[in-house]
Design a protein around this nucleic acid. Structure first.
Length: 287
DNA sequence: TTCCAGGAGAGAG
DNA sequence: CTCTCTCATGGA
């Protein structure tokens, strides 16, 4: 057992349940997930994270990894103060306080959000679990076994049809193509991490199956670009029905978020998104 | 049974 | 530039 403390302004439940990461499962008060090729179980007691890992040979490294993974060094209260402009945001922050935007593994995040298009969170998680079982490596902790998210080469060693059999639908070829491009380093993910949001987004969108929204998700959830704004059906609904009171283009929604919420629109978006999906704004129902 | 989901691509206008 | 249609899948 490894402890990480003190963690302030952090809520493990909201952070892992808000739709940014797809590999965590809650059971009996613990969250189980595969990260960094390890199977972890984590729970939070006040300002302490209790962590068990399938590999505890280097606890310091694990502590540092998770500190960065959950972005625990960031001053969250300052961000929340800056975006807390109205009652919608205020109630979202009140309910979801401590939810942080994570720094996820780039390839896993990229591959996962390719599968997210025209899809729902439950099935995205199912598809990722399926391809991990099919292509990944097994890891065990206690009586549990889970599987690593397959590296690009592990996918290209298989076939598109093998991906299709995992129930990915038309997304199978997108993921296979992305795996090939990354494996052959036509897109260098290490280089990508050092690039600006604009460059990163442009490079991501050069892959088939990655458009504006998925590129924004990868930039926000994995590359630390807090100015990224993923506009999905929920964010569109929120912008059009709660704020603008009219139909709006993606360009207009982006402009509104930027002008209204300022620098941290990624955080603004995530708090409204998570609150709308779990609790729900009653104004969103009247249509 | 039809509708919907953290959309993207292709084509038309 | 903005619409519109299509693309698999499964849970509601």
């Amino acid at each position: 057992m490894i402890e990480i403390k003190p963690v302030s302004d952090f809520n493990l439940y909201h952070t892992l349940s808000c739709g940014q990461a797809f590999r965590w499962y809650e059971d009996d008060g613990w969250f189980y997930g595969v990260v960094n090729n390890k199977l972890l179980k984590i729970c939070q007691e006040d300002d302490t994270l209790l962590v068990e890992s399938s590999d505890e040979s280097d606890p310091i490294q694990l502590q540092q990894y998770l500190w960065h993974y959950f972005d625990l060094g960031r001053d969250l209260s300052r961000i929340l103060d800056s975006i807390n402009k109205d009652q919608y945001m205020n109630v979202s922050i009140e309910v979801c306080r401590g939810m942080r935007i994570m720094n996820q593994d780039l390839w896993e995040c990229l591959g996962s959000f390719i599968l997210s298009q025209n899809n729902n969170v439950l099935r995205i998680k199912q598809m990722i679990r399926k391809i991990s079982e099919e292509f990944g490596n097994p890891i065990s902790l206690d009586e549990r076994t889970d599987y690593t998210f397959p590296a690009p080469e592990m996918i290209t060693n298989g076939s598109v049809d093998q991906l299709f059999q995992c129930g990915l639908g038309y997304r199978a070829s997108y993921l296979f193509n992305a795996a090939a491009v990354v494996a052959e380093k036509q897109l260098d993910l290490v280089w990508l991490k050092s690039q600006s949001y604009l460059v990163a987004k442009q490079e991501l969108m050069s892959l088939r199956g990655i458009g504006d929204k998925v590129a924004a998700c990868v930039s926000l959830f994995s590359l630390g670009h807090g100015e990224a704004l993923p506009i999905d059906v929920w964010v569109r609904r929120i912008a059009e029905r709660l704020y603008l009171k009219r139909k709006a283009s993606k360009r207009q929604i982006l402009e509104f978020f930027h002008d209204y919420f300022g620098e941290y629109i990624g955080y603004a978006q995530q708090y409204l998104f998570h609150y709308a999906r779990t609790v729900g704004f009653k104004e969103l129902l009247d249509h």
